[in-house]
Amino acid sequence: MTVVQMADSGDRPDTVAEPTRLTFEQVTKQFPQRGNRRQRKRMITAVQDLSLICHDQEVVTIIGPSGCGKSTLLNMASGLDRPTKGRITVDDEPVDGPNSHVAFMLQKDLLLPWRTIRENVEFGQEIQGVSRAERRARAHELLAQYRLDEFADYYPHQISGGMRQRAALARTLANDPDVLLMDEPFSALDAQTKMILQRDLAQTLIARQKTALFITHDLEEAVALSDRVLVMSNRPGTIIEEIIIDLPDRDEPFARRQHPRMAGFTRRLMELLHLGDAPEQTTAKQRPH
């Protein structure tokens, strides 16, 4: 099993020649606790001294216990939220607000109910002032690719969950971002639809040469889709383990799932997340700083 135990994943010499797309450098995020006035004085550290690098066209997946700050990472990477300490860069530019290099996709498809599927796909380009003809053409191409051309003029409530999530993927790609940030995009779908969407995503990432930071709770999904899996600790979240998934067929998750070494990777992830342990001991061990 190719498990690489990292002493400190952020400070390692960058031996890979590929350019970096997304980096977190010693990022810490704190926010005030919710609740009454006295409780609000306490700061919660969601993420602590976290460093990671996504190289060009790499798919990096983060897994970790619930509430460990995974979603906070994506909010910061998309520029919607600022780190308390540390630095985040996308395409070697510091992230200081929303930018067109990244686009996110969440568990909720966030299709606007008052727009047709086509208009939803055009939404990002419309905001950025792309001409009507140009964004029509782009939407047409993406809808065709995701087998939604027949449903272009339907409203979101008229189509199935899987189709809605494909439309959300098309919307995410319409602005041609370099980096896709995905927060459990398929977790609300049934098992079969999920596998089809995973394949759609895997093939898109390869064909369009995208980089992705992917968050999931589904360990098999993590192994099937990624080049590397980062395991996060409990809050305050930091990366405790890096596993390189050196399996072939990153664009064919079906094939990867059949691979004899697949089970080894998922078993290793389960151990790291203490999924087999007694409930009292589920807190992840923290790496001493």
Binding site: G79, L80, G97, P98, S100, V102, F104, L110, F123, G124
Partner: peptide
């Protein structure tokens, strides 16, 4: 947030 992420 979706709109903001597109720099609305």
């Amino acid at each position: 947030d979706l709109a903001r992420s597109f720099k609305a």
